[in-house]
Nucleic acid binder design. Sequence first.
DNA 1: TATAATTTGTTGCTTATGCAACAGAATTAT
DNA 2: ATAATTCTGTTGCATAAGCAACAAATTATA
Lengths: 220, 220
Amino acid sequence: MVNTVSCSHMFSGISEESYSKMMTCFHSVPKRFSAGETICFYEPKKRTVGIIEKGRAVVVKTFYSGSQTILEQLSDGSIFGEVFYFHANTDGISVIAASDCTVRFIDYGNIMTSCHNACEHHSQLIQNLFSIISCKAAELSEHIDVLSHRTIREKLMAYFQIQCSKNSSPKFKLPFSLSALADYISVDRSAMMREIKKLKEEGYIDIKQKEVTLLKEYIQ
Amino acid sequence: MVNTVSCSHMFSGISEESYSKMMTCFHSVPKRFSAGETICFYEPKKRTVGIIEKGRAVVVKTFYSGSQTILEQLSDGSIFGEVFYFHANTDGISVIAASDCTVRFIDYGNIMTSCHNACEHHSQLIQNLFSIISCKAAELSEHIDVLSHRTIREKLMAYFQIQCSKNSSPKFKLPFSLSALADYISVDRSAMMREIKKLKEEGYIDIKQKEVTLLKEYIQ
DNA sequence: TATAATTTGTTGCTTATGCAACAGAATTAT
DNA sequence: ATAATTCTGTTGCATAAGCAACAAATTATA
């Protein structure tokens, strides 16, 4: 399942100048990684926040079987770390450079504790961190709302309705493939396709490419 | 569904003295409510943190039909507010006094912005808030782990295994009724009962009263 | 451009699961 | 102590949904 990360703005409202000052204050030095290199592994108690200053990377889960799933896609300005990953077990989770990249590591404690130096926008940084975590929690909550429905039909409609209401329109663009959608709502793909077909036939929805339109209100 | 709140320690590590100082600094005055009174309604953009200083209260969702569900149970030291409720819609959510109680309201902004006065433990407070929110997010994430399984059997076993691993024991005590469990894993109760019966017969689990024991490892 | 890999669309078969409906146990309220 | 409510346990029935397997369409990669 690819987690759409729409809520990373750790340094919004913070000037370039303040940013550099902070990095000095946090004793954070940029590190370079080549494409394919492992940037880090997630560990249970580690509380390091990573920032992709330049380049692309992925957070992947590697299973015992050897198969992998991309949990998150990271690019310029993205942050990562066990602090933003709320699962108890961090087994097999690592961050891999997808291109050459420059990465910063900051100790979580340094962010939380107010510094004695002149970090003028430190409290802004903390507020940003809060909104990032709240936003992630809201995404989880939304996911639960969808998964809590009993049938494939209900799950689909719940998902569609949430997307439309976010978009304040009866239309929205699927952010991932239908296969990934089946994955997200945790149902068999073929069964989901069958249900989508029925929903189309009954005039509830219309799907053209990745464009979904809600035609009728669905009352459960 | 009753949400087990195990992660409220907003003022842990903060002395009585610091607490009073903070409250003055935050311009927060204690308010009294009689049993049955409505303490507040949740509103979309409101960012007020509430603290139950003394007494008991409940966060309830009232549906259009008039039926209600208790979302959370609050007691001495519990905190509440839209900041800790990650759903987009706050319709019909209110906090009701279950006994006579004393409640504080603090503006979320005041907590986030560092104060000029002598709030020595302000950064401790922020750290506590972070751990509360992270803990709630972890609970959501755990819930998703359970709901992501396809069959009732898998959902049950996932839930049981999580509880046991938390308890670091093959046994644990169900924190709610079987009906509530069916609610939590989002399946029909009678179908769940049928599956529990089978799991018992096949020697996977044993349930006596609210005591669940995992007998065999379940591989999905 | 050719080739591989992934995604989409479809179907038959089987069974797990939802639903309704009931009765007894256990809890809570009066 | 009695009544009322909630919880637990069970069953028959219909069907939704999982699984496997395939081909065509689309997208990615060499």
